[in-house]
């Protein structure tokens, strides 16, 4: 009886929390369904059915093309991040020599580098080596900047895998490199889900890099495409709202699909063994 009462209280509190957190999205939703001329309060859902914003946003920003570009860039980057990140984390987690501690520090401190101070030198470099306006260039850039987080999470995750497993493998005669592929890699699934969600999300939402390094209309990404709605003289807020909602859908789906692993993923890295 007491248990059930408590469960009911938790449910109610949970719903209140959800209600509070959903308010901004509710506003986004009402705005996205309103005509520009509709001056009613943002709380009020329009009494008419108006999807013009979605259609206009899709067409004017060439969102079809932008989704494709962003999708290709995100998928390629994430796959490379997973490969380079898991590889790099293994020696850093397992063999903490003085050198490797420094290397780890170098990787993680890149999280802190302010992007603006490196913008101009980076841009010059891109022009010099012909990486401008290429998927290749922007993918490598995303990979580099997201790797810090991936290495950070992979390293702490591998740290929780008992060393007994390694030793067992060694007795079976595997090399250390071989052991990584045979023993460690299959165990990384949960943390990989975490990294996919977090990194895919920031690459999908990237604005700065895409703006500067992809300067051809047909290579635009979603955020850059949507930013064209912020004009000097008017902001098509309905279009922006509709576009943002559409842009968020793939991320939300990925999150819901991987949610189960996501929780496990951080768990293994987050609890003292």
């Amino acid at each position: 009886m007491k248990q059930r009462k408590r469960a009911a209280v938790y449910t109610i509190v949970g719903l209140i929390v959800a209600l509070v957190h959903i308010v901004p999205f509710y506003i986004l939703l009402t705005v996205s369904f309103k005509d520009l001329r509709d001056m009613s309060s943002k709380w009020v859902f329009p009494g008419y059915w108006f999807t013009g914003n979605f259609v206009s946003a899709w067409q004017n920003a060439h969102l079809g093309r932008a989704f494709l570009n962003t999708g290709v860039i995100t998928v390629l980057s994430v796959v490379l991040i997973l490969i380079f990140g898991s590889l790099a984390a293994f020696p850093l987690a397992r063999y903490q020599s003085r050198l490797n501690k420094w290397v780890y520090g170098i990787f993680v401190s890149a999280l802190i580098v302010p992007p603006l101070t490196i913008l101009v030198p980076l841009y010059k470099l891109f022009v010099d080596i012909g990486f401008m306006n290429t998927y290749f260039g922007i993918v490598l850039l995303h990979v580099t900047f997201q790797l810090s987080m991936a290495i950070f999470l992979y390293t702490s995750f591998i740290g929780t895998i008992p060393r007994e497993l390694d030793e067992a493998a060694m007795i079976d005669g595997a090399t250390k490199t071989g052991m990584f592929f045979r023993i460690i890699l299959p165990l990384l699934k949960p943390v990989t889900a975490t990294i996919v969600i977090m990194n895919a999300n920031s690459i999908w939402n990237d604005y700065q890099f895409s703006l500067f390094f992809l300067q051809k209309p047909d290579s635009r990404t979603i955020t850059v495409a949507l930013s064209s709605f912020f004009g000097e003289n008017s902001a098509q807020i309905g279009w922006i709202a509709a576009g943002s909602l559409m842009a968020a859908i793939p991320s939300i789906l990925v999150y819901i699909l991987l949610q189960k692993y996501f929780v496990d993923g951080i768990a293994a890295g987050a609890v003292k063994g």
């Binding site: 022009v127 012909g130 990486f131 401008m132 306006n133 290429t134 998927y135 290749f136 260039g137 300067q215 051809k216 290579s219």
Partner: peptide
């Protein structure tokens, strides 16, 4: 990316 890179800046 090759078709893009050719006609760069």
């Amino acid at each position: 990316s090759r078709p893009d890179s050719g006609s760069g800046n």
